[in-house]
């Protein structure tokens, strides 16, 4: 079937099988910042935002995502124009192997959109899908708090 996916604001028409999984379609179409391995919704690596909310793209039918806005980490920020979350992650040693980071950044983005000043608990809960085997999470949590503070200041200015 032919369907239309909107990825980071760009509409693209893609040919999919009705049972295709969003993660697989995104990768096939070259959206390589979305990765994933478990295909069981267990690890959070494949997180994308659907209308601003984090979902596991490995458990989502591509057809179900049609008509919704899909945001990947590159829709949040790029090397040239990093988002404060990416700045904070990079500047606090919160990125090690990097594999889980796009998913973690997206979960954090959704959290901050909803709660601009989350405490530790809220951050841990709001990003609990996103396993990270390298960092032990602490520096990421600090980074989210730092980014949140920076964004709040920005809003005030």
């Amino acid at each position: 079937m032919t369907t239309t996916l909107t990825v980071n604001g760009t509409m693209c028409t893609v040919e999919i099988d009705p049972g295709d999984i969003l993660l697989d379609v995104l990768r096939r179409e070259g959206t390589l910042e979305v990765r994933g391995d478990c295909h069981t919704g267990d690890c959070g690596v494949c997180t994308v935002l659907l209308d601003g909310r984090p979902v596991a793209s490995c458990l989502m039918f591509a057809a179900k995502a049609a008509g919704h806005a899909i945001t990947t980490v590159r829709g949040v920020g790029t090397e040239a124009h990093p988002h404060p979350l990416q700045e904070a992650f990079v500047h606090n040693g919160a990125v090690q192997c990097g594999y889980c980071i796009p998913g973690a950044i997206l979960a954090a983005k959704a959290l901050l959109d909803e709660n601009p000043d989350p405490d530790d608990q809220a951050i841990r809960l709001g990003m609990d899908s996103n396993y990270c085997r390298c960092t032990g999470y602490e520096q990421q949590i600090e980074a989210v708090k730092a980014a949140a503070a920076a964004m709040r200041e920005d809003v005030h200015q």
């Binding site: 390589l32 990079v90 980071i101």
Partner: peptide, 25 residues
């Protein structure tokens, strides 16, 4: 000094840097 990782921004922005990304691309 805590110099940020040289590849930090690329990793945080999801650049296609892992084996399967390169293979797919």
């Amino acid at each position: 000094t805590s110099v940020p990782k040289l590849d930090g921004y690329a990793l945080a922005a999801g650049a296609p840097l892992y084996a399967d990304d390169i293979a797919e691309r």
